[in-house]
Amino acid sequence: MLDVRDVVTAYGKIEALKGVTLSVAEGRITCLLGPNGAGKTTLMYSIAGILKPRRGRIALKDREITGRAPDQVVQAGVALVPENRLVFPQMSVRENLTAGAYLRRDRAGIAADMERMFQRFPRLKEREGQLAGTLSGGEQQMLSVARALMSRPRLLLMDEPSLGLAPLVVEEIFRIVTELNRDGTTIFLVEQNAHMALKVAHHFYLMEQGRVSFSGTPGEVEEAEVIQRAYLGSRRAD
């Protein structure tokens, strides 16, 4: 579904991504783990078109999207659930969802999808007219996910959806991730919470200092080993 080849993205002279290669399989949950500052969010932004890679190639189903503007990437079928949720606090829940469907023109389809979101997230339905800023952290995260889904993405990028949420809410968010995936959405997930991420992911990558240092499937490696590598640094000889 998503193919990232040798992508280099830099902030001025500092290369945050030093040649990242990975792929996300259609219909799967792929997870990207790694310590703070490894370049995970930079990779998300590079895919979403917020940052332009200096080198390399990003393709969505054989269609190249490298360096495209964010609106073209959304149009191509990629939606981002940003870190810290970033709902519009001064807009109602409904307006936030409408904003997610900004590039769509099919009114009937948008209305139908809105109802679908309210079915999936009944709490949002209860708070339909409420300002998003008054929602709890977990509800804001659901709104952020629902808002991204309103663009009808083929690939959903999620940047640290569990950040700052209570354990029970984190469980719920991951349950939603699994459900969405079961319903056919391909998910590429960045997480700090390796334990939860490894529970839901079909495949994972480990990123350190702007490079992919390890990849595997959760079953074949010990969780402790992955966490050791992700947060305490790998023990590679090179």
Partner: peptide, 23 residues
């Protein structure tokens, strides 16, 4: 209006508005 929604989104949070595909 749809335009107004995009306008408010941009006014409030430029970066997030861009994430959603608003030019």
């Amino acid at each position: 209006s749809r335009f107004g929604l995009a306008l408010r989104a941009t006014a409030r949070d430029r970066a997030t508005a861009r994430h959603l595909g608003i030019d």
